[in-house]
Each structure stands twice: as C-alpha cells, then as structure tokens.
C-alpha cells in the first residue's frame, strides 16, 4: 500500500494550487438527424470503404445469403445463442460447431475453423463500426477473432448514426469489441493495408426488420 499512498500524496502535493475544473461543454452532436434508410446507406458506405463485404437484405433472405457467403467453408463456428434459422440454408457438407457454456472450443479448434458467424449489439454508421458485447448471439471474444473469416449479422434496428447514440445502448462493463472493417495496418509508410492478425475477411449482413 505504500506506493499507492505515496503516489496519491504526490498528486495532492502537485495540485496544491487547487485548480478548479471548468464545466465540460458537450456541444457536439448527440442525436441523429438522418432518416433510417440513409443511416443504413451511410453504414454501408463506411464498411465498403474499409473493404468489408456488405449486403442489405430482408430478414427472410438471410439464410440464403449466409449459405452463399460461406459456400467455400468446411467448418463454421457460431455462438450458442445465435438464431439457428440463419444457418438453415447451409449445405450439410458444412460442419457447424456451436461455442457456448456447455462446450468452449479450444484456441486450436478455433484456428482450424474456416469462418465464424455472429450477431452484433450496436453499429455506428458514421464511423462504420460494429460493436459486439459478448451476448449469447455474439459469443465470447475469441470466437470472432481467431477464424480468418467473420460473417457478422447487423439487425437494422441496432444501427445508429452517431457514436453518442451508440453509447446509450451499450452496457460498458460487458467485454466489448468494436470492429471497423477487417484487420488492417498503417505501419508501413502510413498507408492502410487490410489483413493482418484479426479476421482478414469481414462480411456484414445488414438485416431489415421482418
């Protein structure tokens, strides 16, 4: 405890002049002014810019789209709480593995999988960001990380235009992963290149409400 007390003592001493913090001005935008379809359009535009694959569909068309996107996969991981109707059109040759409380896949098993399909909690159109919060239909963080192909389902009702709007919908203490495109780096000459350690392919299915 000595270190803690000493550091806090130093802070008190450093602030001996008693600075009075000013009121925090929050004049930035907190509410969207765009109609819903334009918000979706904005999200699509941003995700495409990040080189993600994006489809906007009615919910009923989803199983067929999932089957088409994952046609080359042999093993597909999904979180136990995912709506399995989404997987209904996949051919029987595809091995589907659920990850959940009953059975947690090992890292090696995840590494063997060709793809993962999850849902998502909230998406921010302006920055092209999809947030996963570890709910049952999104699973624990490792499953959307290790497989090289992530197919992420985004219900239209979970899309907002601005980051402050998304904050209201989040439970911040859940383990959160914010995803804005496939993994990328700007480390060589500050030019963005997609595909490093995280999934190198990101497909996004935006589903209009049924």
């Amino acid at each position: 405890m000595r270190a803690k007390e000493e550091i806090l003592g130093r802070i008190r001493c450093a602030l001996g002049d008693g600075p009075i913090p000013a009121e925090i001005p929050r004049a930035y935008r907190t509410g969207s002014l765009l109609p819903d379809d334009e918000v979706i359009e904005l999200l699509v535009d941003r995700l495409v810019d990040y080189k993600a694959g994006v489809l906007v569909l009615d919910a009923a068309q989803a199983p067929q789209a999932v089957a088409e996107i994952l046609h080359a996969a042999r093993t597909v991981v999904y979180p136990q709480g995912l709506d399995t109707q989404l997987l209904g059109a996949l051919p029987e040759t595809v091995e589907l593995i659920a990850d959940g409380r009953q059975r947690q896949l090992s890292v090696a098993e995840l590494d063997q999988a060709d793809a993962v399909i999850t849902s998502s909690a909230v998406s921010i159109a302006e920055s092209g960001t999809i947030i996963l919060d570890g709910s049952a239909d999104q699973g624990r963080r490792a499953i959307s990380l290790v497989p090289d192909h992530h197919l992420c389902v985004v219900p239209a009702s979970t899309i907002v235009q601005l980051l402050p709007e998304a904050m209201e919908r989040l439970t911040i203490t859940r383990p959160l992963t914010w995803i804005s495109g496939p993994s990328a780096t700007s480390d060589i000459e500050l030019e963005r290149v997609e595909g490093v350690h995280g999934p190198r392919t990101l497909d996004v299915l935006i589903l209009r409400d049924a």
Partner: peptide
C-alpha cells in the same frame, strides 16, 4: 486518419 480504427477492446 481513419474514421475509426479497425479494432477496440474494452474490458472491466
């Protein structure tokens, strides 16, 4: 210089 960086992680 990106609208958002590809990944952010938050843990409590």
């Amino acid at each position: 210089g990106e609208r958002m960086n590809p990944y952010s992680s938050l843990w409590t």
